[in-house]
Design a protein around this nucleic acid. Structure first.
Lengths: 240, 240
DNA sequence: GAGTGGTCTAGACCACCCC
DNA sequence: GGGTGGTCTAGACCACTCC
């Protein structure tokens, strides 16, 4: 089950192995795991390597440790929702809904001062502007505008955007998307939003602005979304 | 600067030392840190111990690593906001506002089915109910209702709540608050909320429900807040 | 080739929990 | 006292970046 000769790090293999056991239900919330020493013995690896795998899983909320007692499976009933950076598509799938998308606009424009400052580029530099209505189970869920520097992310097409923008950036351009900041606020639908989302003028909406960055802090993407408040709640999980 | 005989772990001392340098501005965003090996040499500690300190700081967003190049200070201009679990008081202080509070109600009630299920207790078990208006710079910011199991958190007083509930739970009761789930949604002020928050009926508000847990998953606290949308935006930072 | 972070080892002693 | 996680050491080899 653990291949020591594989180029895949051992700690990562162990991580996936344990995650698999949890997802298959062989390890249930509250269950204690075999001790770090037992894993080390069983797979003939160092205890530090086991600890590295455990630490990642603790950090991601799969496990928790109690000194002197052991390592246990977390109760993730409530905390399931947002684990790290996900796309709209993944988000909807996790919520058990069928994601969809309706393209309104895809073009290159000159960056406004506001967009340029968010993307850390000069005013009037070219940026892709993509406007879409996002659907969940074929019903409008959000109205979304995406801005991407055309000098940083070259060769973008509608097709790529439809598939997976993040995969393209990471696998074709070899850039590593690392983190994002989201600003969430409450507002009221204007006429345009009401029309696109099929709700009443003045109905509550959740505005989410996401700024995505590479590891060195270079902005990759700016997304402004308006979600229907009657269909969408934002959930996050926080560690102390 | 590093005391190897102190009961405080070396990796933690190094963490604080580096954080200090960043906060004092001696290390600026984009700067590269001395290498792991240099720190190990300088303080006569193992490289693994240095890595442990670095890893925590990377995880908390202070640093980022580039293989083959070095370790660098993150640009935290935008990402500053919400780092882990914070109280209203801390939150407002970080935003540069003066926090305040106006107590509306403090009593023990029998848990409704809804509250009981959130706190994982039986219906009609005693719970503290605390209702407050939260102020920022003396202006209403949020209307907040807190529910806490009276059997779990004993001896709660208004005074404790006014100071720091979390300190009381951790230092007096020796329970370790570990994580929380927050659900954020957009809504419109009803008459009561409008009155308390000094806004118009129908004005947008941000509803935030927070469920707080101990390490083993025991619910500690349930907080329902209604924030004025014109004064409050929720910000989060996410790692991929 | 020299320097960096990424992974890994085989030990060690400690603090804590439970019997 | 025996088991657990928490910390720490002093090495090792690898992949990567830069010159």
């Amino acid at each position: 089950m653990i291949d020591k000769n594989s180029p895949i790090p051992i700690y990562y293999q162990l991580e996936e192995l344990i995650k698999g056991l949890i997802e298959k239900g062989e390890l249930k919330p509250g269950d204690s795991l075999p001790s770090e020493r037992e894993y080390a013995e069983k797979y003939q690896i160092s205890r530090m390597t086991v600890r590295q795998a455990f630490s990642k899983l603790v950090n991601d909320g799969y496990l928790y440790r109690l000194q002197g007692k052991g390592t246990f499976i977390s109760d993730r009933k409530i905390e399931q929702p947002l684990q790290g950076l996900t796309s709209f598509t993944e988000d909807m799938q996790k919520r058990g809904m069928k994601p969809g998308s309706q393209l309104l606009d895809f073009k290159i424009i000159a960056a406004s001062l506001q967009i340029a400052s968010q993307l850390n580029i000069q005013e009037n530099e070219p940026v892709y502007e993509i406007k879409r209505i996002r659907l969940a189970d074929d019903v409008p869920m959000a109205f979304e505008s995406t801005y991407i520097s055309a000098n940083l992310i070259k060769g973008l097409t509608i097709d790529i955007v439809h598939k997976s923008l993040y995969s393209y950036i990471e696998e074709q351009l070899h850039l590593r998307i690392d983190h994002a900041t989201q600003i969430i606020e409450s507002s009221i639908a204007n006429q345009l939003e009401a029309q696109y989302l099929n709700i009443k003028n003045g109905a509550p909406i959740l505005l989410i602005q996401r700024n995505t960055f590479l590891q060195d802090g270079t902005p990759v993407e700016l997304v402004k979304s308006s979600y229907r408040a009657d269909r969408y709640k934002f959930m996050i999980h926080m560690k102390r």
